[in-house]
Amino acid sequence: MDILNALVAFLNFVFVPAFGYGCQLALGALGVTLIFAVLRFSSFAHGDTMAFGTVMAIGFTYVLQANGITFGPLPTALLALPFAILCTALMLLGTDRLVYRFYRKKRVDPIIVTIASVGVMFVMNGINRLIPWGGVEEINFADGSRFLMEAAAFKEMTGLKEGLAIKTTTAVTVVTAALCVAALFWFLQKTRTGKSMRAFSDNEDLALLSGINPERVVQVTWIIVAALATIAGVLYGLDKSYRPFVYFQLLLPIFSAAVVGGLGSPLGAIAGGFVIAFSEVMVTYAWKKVAGYLFPADWLGDGLLQLLSTDYKVAVSFAILLLVLLVKPTGLFKGK
């Protein structure tokens, strides 16, 4: 029995990665859930919105780097974020003007708007791949120092056999996500505009009667979604890497997170993000190492103690999604 080493191994291989990934999913799911709450449709273009924001951030990162501007130990992409968010916001507002506004005025069945978002997805997917510095290949744009804490340093410090490494990008993810969420909730709970968004989401007709301008609410929503999607995309890309197809595939865990939490509920989106991330990592992690510290070797046999191979990550989000739909379709935090 070596509980300390087991714990460190658990933290290093399960908790830290899952927590970072959970933050990224939560930010993505927040975007989906806000679109759903205010505009009342599920946006299939959200993965590509994240990709667009990330490509923009990569572009600005290159510009900054070319001018010799970096962010010290932190990734330069963080400095590029505001510009990238601005581009994404303009793009989303433009999309709304060209596509979604028409359906909103006509008050069509939300599923039609969802299908329109598939068209938007196609277009954005194409644009992302056509952007000169984007393309279809993997891009790694994280710079600055790689680790906040290296495994070797941790071992030396504690004298344990297991090391605990914390990547700079993971730390950046957690801090940025926490700031974003705090800012978002402050905005929704305390400001007049934020409250009007909630009111519009709650009861559109009554919001109109109260003199809330729907177009303004929608615009503010798109701007917030742009910020969330860009930040989520950039954090994911820093932590792993950017690739349009991977971002497109993030759609499923993000949707699952939003549904698990309850579509339309911001708090739920965050909880859902962590539920999905931790399940994915825990179900596909080979527990042999952690178990090796806790139990005698001859108990364990020679299996990896891995419930599912990592290729089945997608199955995990999906299984949780199905379970929630079966047991509690409104999600953990009562969505719509």
């Binding site: 599920s42 599923i111 969802t114 699952s256 549904v259 579509l263 739909l325 719509k336």
Partner: peptide
Amino acid sequence: RSDYLAIA
């Protein structure tokens, strides 16, 4: 909801 079928 119809979106759930799409997601599932």
